[in-house]
Design a protein around this nucleic acid. Structure first.
Length: 296
DNA sequence: CGCCAGGTAGGTA
DNA sequence: TACCTACATGGC
């Protein structure tokens, strides 16, 4: 059993759990997998029906089952340390100083501090760029159960089949090339509605190299301009895709949604100028509070 | 059955 | 700039 500790105080070690290889990560200081997977940023991870308390899903072409023994650790089942380093370390955004981020957000306003108290253990995942873009194109004017169903259907039709340890078939998120290899009418047949041509346009743009141009943009404003050149990507979809797929934590300078959420959650709040380097992260706290805490 | 859902594009005043 | 509407579908 070898041990590795990073500069962030996170400890990673290869171990055995439930009779299989696993990676145990500790020193996470209140990382809530449940809130993180269920807060509306990610549509492909669900509670496991095989292992009570675990979550499972597919990202970056791999199936993962993961659970926690405490708020400060996570156990990745059937995972080698190499796979953890290659994929999941970044997916779970363990390279980010979350304690500092949360403190920065809470320091911006008493109101956001209240939100951070309830939602501060949410982490922003680093999802695949194309998946994030297409997922939030699909999200427009849709509810979350249906978004999940449509993404599942998209993956089943265009993705690669992989097997869970129990032999269940699950599917990877499709490549843009695969989507373009079939006519638009095949997307329409998935019942994605008027978003069919938007998804197709995103796939075309991805094949034309737009993802790298977005990543390489010097500012989030520049990145937003580029991603919004895709038909069907407006300010809201752009902000979500940039935050969840491109590590632009300041996306959501678009204050409209945040102000509405703040006004609903904290009607007495006067401190509404809460935007900054982590505006997107703060926005996700509010989205979570609105859905699961203050509202019913 | 009606209202709503992590909206956007295209049109008009 | 600010509003209006079509768009396609189904969750609740």
């Amino acid at each position: 059993m070898k041990t590795n500790c990073s500069e962030m105080g996170i400890c990673v070690r290869q171990t055995t759990e439930h009779g299989m290889a696993a990676v145990k990560v500790s020193g996470l200081s209140r990382y809530s997998l449940e809130k993180t997977f269920d807060c509306g940023q990610c549509f492909r991870f669900e509670p496991s029906s095989v292992l009570e308390g675990a979550f499972e899903g597919v990202a970056f072409g791999r199936f993962l089952r993961v659970y926690q023994d405490s708020p400060d650790d996570m156990i990745l089942l059937g995972c080698t340390e190499e796979e953890f380093r290659d994929i999941w370390y970044k997916f779970f955004s363990l390279h980010r100083p979350w304690a500092d981020i949360e403190a920065d957000i809470a320091a911006r306003s008493d109101t956001l501090a209240r939100a951070a108290q309830r939602a501060g253990d949410i982490r922003i995942l680093t999802q695949d760029r194309f998946e994030a873009t297409v997922s939030f194109i699909i999200s427009q004017c849709n509810n979350i159960p249906r978004i999940k169903g449509l993404i599942r259907a998209l993956c089943r039709k265009y993705g690669e089949c992989i097997l869970t340890p129990e032999g269940e078939r699950v599917y990877t998120f499709p490549t843009p090339e695969k989507i373009l290899s079939m006519p638009l009418s095949e997307l329409t047949a998935l019942k994605v509605g008027y978003r069919d041509k938007y998804i197709y346009a995103a796939a075309q743009a991805a094949c034309d190299g737009i993802l790298d141009r977005i990543s390489n943009a010097p500012t989030t404003a520049e990145a937003e301009k580029i991603i919004m050149s895709i038909e069907g990507v407006g300010k809201k979809v752009a902000a979500c895709a940039l935050l969840f797929g491109f590590e632009r934590y300041d996306a959501f300078p678009v204050d409209v949604w945040m102000k509405r959420a703040l006004a609903r959650l904290f009607p007495d709040a006067r401190d509404m100028s809460v935007f900054g380097e982590y505006a997107g992260v703060a926005q996700q706290y509010l989205f979570y509070c609105e859905r699961y805490i203050e509202g019913k």
